[in-house]
């Protein structure tokens, strides 16, 4: 399933780049997931607070 990167020089990001959008979807997920935590943290604060 995992291909060698097609790029010239091997690299970490090259490995994540496994065809259709793997790399970019990975990065988007990593960026967005913590926002869920921020969301619940804020919710807790709102409930406890005023």
């Amino acid at each position: 399933m995992f291909e060698q990167f097609t790029d010239v020089v091997p690299s970490f990001f090259g490995y994540l780049n496994q065809g259709p959008l793997t790399l970019t979807i990975f990065l988007h997920t990593v960026i967005i997931l913590p926002m869920i935590w921020i969301y619940f943290d804020e919710k807790k604060k709102l409930k406890n607070g005023k």
Partner: peptide, 11 residues
């Protein structure tokens, strides 16, 4: 309104 995180500036 106060309980909605979506309208909270701090969020």
């Amino acid at each position: 309104e106060k309980l909605s995180v979506w309208t909270s500036i701090s969020f």
